[in-house]
Structure formats: structure tokens, C-alpha cells
């Protein structure tokens, strides 16, 4: 039925050599009765874009924040390059759903914020670096504007530039486009793929949009809700050489979207 390769055994891709991030046996309870995640084992391949996809309540954002070190696990561990990590670290950078920009700081100050916190380089070096990434995300000329002077899409570009500027190997993106309107969102997805092709980053991406997941991902992890478990892992295998419009009309693209929808619709009440 499907042209996409489906790995039925969730554990199959775990603990291989070239996974930059691995999670082992992650279980998460909120309080005593809310069971958010149940024994998640997962590997995130180096240099690839992995999407966590699922209905609300499947714990996808919880899992992402655990990987980021922002939440504690109840059980299990997170490994980066095979070593367990505790709390946030310089090898991971987070892009927030609501952008989390400092409203009192200019674009360039926001982008340089991560560098400044960890005292990387001198002030001119930091500004140089911030400027570079502001240009990379297409915000050249907006360096001295404040967040409230930018549109939602532009604000998230600032958030992305900030994450890129600290030069982390792993980008963690929590529904980065959900607060952005549909047109901006499509353009942003295209720009993101273009940007990442040059940056050699590994990305873990959370979304609730099936189309978005299929469009941007190398690997899609479907999660089922209450408690969050891995339902299946799908690799869309869509050629990235075609133009965005061709991809969106590609039969494999459309079939994968359809297949995921068939899998997920049974979780809707």
C-alpha cells in the first residue's frame, strides 16, 4: 500500500552507531496519576530531521523537553553521542513554540543572547556571528528592530537564528510554526530545509501537522496517546531534489500523508 518504508519494530533503529541522540526507556509521570510517556526507546540519526508526530496528549512536547533537559524523567535516560546527559547542554539548542524572545531586546541582542550567557567570544565577535545568522534566516536589515515590530513569522526566524548562533549540533524545535499563519508557514518550511541542507544539523521536530511532518522529515515517529508510546516509525523517502511544489504533488508524499492519517484517526474521540 505504501511506498514509504515502515519500521514496525520501534527498537530497530535504537542504539546504532550513528545516532547523535538516543533516549532509553523514558517514562514520565506528572504527579502520581498522569502517565505522559511509557518506556520510550528511540534513536535520532546524525544529520537528519526526525519528527515527533501525534495527537494532542501523546507526550511529544514532553519528550522533546526531556531531551532538551528542561524536564526530568521519571525513569530512563537521554544520551548524546552515547553519553548520558543531565539538564540542558551546549550541544542542544531549542526553538520555542511561542518564540520566547526577550521583548526588551533588539533582534541582534536576542540572537546573541545564547552566546552572551555562556560568554562565547568577545562582544564584537558575538555581534558578527549574530549578524551572520540574522542574514542566514533572511532578516538582514532588521538587526535593531524589537520583537513587537516584527510579524509572527519573522519572530520565529529570530528564534531560529538564536538557536543556530550557539552552533549546537542538535536543534530541538517545538511546533515552531504553529503560531504562524499558513502562507508564512509554507515559506518557512521551505527556507528551513534549504538552510539545514547547508548547516549539517540534526533536528528533532515536534508538530501536530501531518503534512508538515511528511514534507520536512527524514524520519517520522508516530506517537499514540495516554500514555505516550511509539506507534510506528516512518521514513517518507521523498527526494529532496525536486522543487517544493513538485514534492507537495508527489504521489509518495500524498500516500504517506494518507497512511499516517489512517493510523492516527482511530485516536480521535
Amino acid at each position: 500500500m505504501s511506498t514509504a518504508a515502515v519500521a514496525q519494530m520501534p527498537d530497530q533503529n535504537a542504539s546504532t552507531e550513528d545516532n547523535i541522540v538516543e533516549v532509553r526507556n523514558i517514562t514520565k509521570y506528572y504527579g502520581e496519576d498522569i502517565h505522559a510517556l511509557d518506556s520510550i526507546n528511540l534513536g535520532f540519526p546524525t544529520g537528519q530531521m526526525t519528527t515527533l508526530l501525534g495527537p494532542s496528549g501523546c507526550g511529544k512536547t514532553t519528550l522533546l523537553k526531556i531531551i532538551a533537559g528542561l524536564l526530568e524523567t521519571t525513569e530512563g535516560e537521554v544520551l548524546i553521542h552515547g553519553k548520558p546527559v543531565f539538564g540542558p547542554g551546549p550541544e542542544r539548542a531549542f526553538v520555542f513554540q511561542d518564540f520566547a524572545l526577550l521583548p526588551w531586546a533588539t533582534v541582534i541582542e536576542n540572537v546573541g543572547f545564547g552566546l552572551e550567557l555562556t560568554n562565547k567570544g568577545t562582544k564584537p565577535e558575538r555581534e558578527e556571528k549574530a549578524k551572520h545568522y540574522i542574514n542566514e534566516v533572511g532578516l538582514g536589515g532588521f538587526e535593531y528592530k524589537y520583537p513587537h515590530e516584527l510579524s509572527g513569522g519573522m519572530r520565529q526566524r529570530v528564534g531560529l537564528a538564536r538557536a543556530l548562533a550557539v552552533n549546537a549540533e542538535v536543534l530541538l524545535m517545538d511546533e515552531p510554526f504553529s503560531a504562524v499563519d499558513e502562507q508564512t508557514r509554507r515559506k518557512f518550511q521551505e527556507d528551513l530545509l534549504y538552510l539545514l541542507a547547508n548547516e549539517k544539523k540534526s533536528v528533532i521536530f515536534v508538530t501536530h501537522s501531518i503534512e508538515e511532518a511528511v514534507y520536512v522529515s527524514d524520519q517520522i515517529v508516530l506517537l499514540s496517546p495516554r500514555p505516550g508510546r511509539i506507534h510506528s516509525i516512518i521514513r517518507p523517502e521523498i527526494s529532496r531534489d525536486s522543487t517544493p511544489d513538485e514534492i507537495r504533488r508527489d504521489k509518495r508524499y500524498l500516500d504517506t500523508v494518507e497512511e499516517i492519517w489512517t493510523n492516527l484517526r482511530k485516536y480521535l474521540d
Binding site: K65, A68, G69, L70, G87, P88, G89, P90, R92, A93, F94, F96, Q97, D98, A100, L102, P103, W104, F113, G114, L117, T118, R162, V166, L172
Partner: peptide, 24 residues
């Protein structure tokens, strides 16, 4: 998310207080 942002970019408790929370 502003607190999480500070933490994820490596802010110490003191930095979080003086660079983020106070201004916010």
C-alpha cells in the same frame, strides 16, 4: 517558555534572575 529559553541556552540561576526574570 522564557524561563525554559534561559535554561536551555545555559543561563545560571543568577543570570536567569538578572537577565531574564527581572526584565520580564
Amino acid at each position: 517558555s522564557l524561563r525554559e529559553m534561559g535554561r536551555s541556552f545555559g543561563a545560571s540561576r543568577f543570570q536567569l534572575l538578572t537577565r531574564v526574570l527581572f526584565w520580564a
